[in-house]
Nucleic acid binder design. Structure first.
Lengths: 201, 201, 201, 201
DNA sequence: CATGAATGAGGTTTCATTCAT
DNA sequence: AATGAATGAAACCTCATTCAT
């Protein structure tokens, strides 16, 4: 990582802190520059504008997320086991990155332009990965096939996003992982073939 | 409804349209006043400030939502039947109030001050209603008791919020009710006692 | 005093309280109306506009001031004795009317339009009275004649205004009459013929 | 003086002119910016807000006042001679800075927040200087000791402020120095030990 | 590459005054 | 005479962005 990248990282890190505390509209370039210890103008050497800097946050963070998730899924077999791990890691990650969680869930996710940005596309791999696991599960014969796989994916991601968002809005006062087990049970049951239940019995 | 209330309603209606199109920060009092056909200052006779007007929207809309829901639930028996109807109505309502949906899901829900406002409390009755139905279902013996009822509620509301939000972010281009049936199936299965499945067979 | 005058008095009294607490610019017609318990519009039945109401305060207060002063000067002989009493009464009056003191000294006295208003002229009698006493003193042979009588009057009124103003700006925390004696001595000495001193010895 | 200071001075100079002509409340940042030939926003690079700019005026002017006064007092001996010169210079200064006089006497002096500001403290040195001269005079044996020195100081400053204020309210139409001599006489006599009079004879 | 002074558009909010009831 | 809803002008201040040094 060269000098330029180091400074860019520093700006992004400061941006995460500032944006997460005050939101996009109430954060100022000046605050971010101050936190990094550089002049405001310098930020414009690295980012086209305020929104560009804002959107670069998930671009960066998603790299970490995916790389780590990869490791955590290594050596796990079975669709439900993979999904269980994925759910755990998702909650674990955001619990440990609360600033980013706020930025992503309360600001970016809801930003009109974001959905059209290329930063948004950086989620695609993760999203696809979930889809692949579901498909595998159907081929294994453990996941029901009478429900659209995109709806199944939406079920999982929807619950996860909601859990994190709720946690944020409640002031991050409880342990986000505390209902992990129960949520797993609900999702597994919902997605299973009925027959698979009988097998479990 | 007296004259003053009529005008207040008119302002709220205009506010919904304007806020939903541009977001809170990018909407102006001037736009809203213009839409109602009154002077800017007049709005401040009815609302303390911009945020007060903003927060008064759900206060008003929730009244309608609850009143109508009440009617739709009349004469329906069985926890799952009630939940099914509730899910359908929720999606139906927001599909038919897309402006309000945008305001609520993409702006209000994510606003720090909103969670502390009294407008937020107007959701409480609906939220409690869901909880009651779940409890009834447990007493009927059709809903599992090995998962916290608050987690069960979160499951339902989380999925619903997520579906509406996703629909909005995708440009409202598809029919929000189109996967209603499948979602019902997923949620029912997730929440059921296993034994109840066998009975259905 | 008929009904109309009673209400007018009530408005003026409320105006004194409000204006003195917040100043002219930061006081609102609404506040005054509220204090009286009438509608804003009603005030415009009695006063042309905000400034007219403001200027009507000294017009009213000066009546009281002069009437009382008259009584206090009754039966006092000798220019210095009269001046001494006048100084005492001036300080006594404002100490007991601190709201009006603030309005007059910190707002009105400094208002451009006020100097041109007819309310300003209501001070004239008092001002003339002082001049008359000085003239009398010169004829009695106790007040120096080598200084312009207008300068002598300015000396007295200047010190008095300054004392009241200083007292107000210091938060009215000390007794305004506490240096009355000393000030008298200073003024008397300054105004006396030298010979009169020797006579006193 | 660097570039930044020069511009700051220019803004203050323009502010004096504008504030003195219209008063604080009726002056606009826009007017001041226009007079300097800069954008409104630029003013906020130099001053926190309108009031900050307002209060910075005496901070600046007092520097000049004190520096010049120092020179004028050089080589003068005797408390009364010093006070005489000080009175003359005070009147001379405000006569030659009528804009500032208006701002200080009619606006700042009467502003609640001003008395608490640090700008107010910039008068302290001058105020102390007067006190020192009085003390010297008492040690020399020419100034009476039966009157509190703070009252004596108040006598001097009160008359001076009043003279300037009166001059301003009368439209600055006469020569402020015209009664300088007479005022000196009054103040000297008031402050003197009686015995000192005999010596003068 | 870095700086930071300058810009200037733009929106919320207040409130004296009016006037129809 | 009293009301009080409606008006609408007006100004402070912020801050992303630029550009000369």
């Amino acid at each position: 990582m060269n000098k330029k990248d180091i400074k860019k990282q520093a700006i992004i890190q400061a941006a995460i802190e500032v944006f997460s505390r005050n939101g996009f509209q109430n954060s100022t370039i000046s605050q971010i520059a101050q936190k990094v210890g550089i002049a405001e103008g310098t930020i414009y050497q690295y980012f086209k504008n305020k929104e560009d800097l804002f959107f670069s946050i998930p671009l960066e963070k998603t790299k970490n997320f995916s790389k780590e998730l990869e490791l955590h899924l290594q050596g796990i077999n079975g669709a439900f086991n993979k999904i269980g791990k994925l759910i755990w890691y998702y909650l674990y990650f955001f619990q440990n990155n609360p600033d980013y969680a706020r930025t992503l869930m309360l600001e970016l996710r809801v930003n009109k332009n974001f959905a059209k940005s290329k930063a948004y596309k950086s989620f695609k791999p993760f999203s696809n990965q979930v889809l692949e696991i579901i498909k595998d599960g159907q081929q294994e014969g453990v996941i029901r096939t009478d429900v659209d796989i995109y709806v199944l994916r939406q079920l999982i991601l929807g619950i996860l996003e909601h859990m994190v968002t709720r946690w944020l809005l409640k002031g991050e006062k409880y342990n986000l992982l505390e209902h992990c087990e129960e949520v797993n049970r609900l999702i597994f049951r919902g997605m299973s073939l009925e027959t698979s239940h009988r097998e479990f019995r």
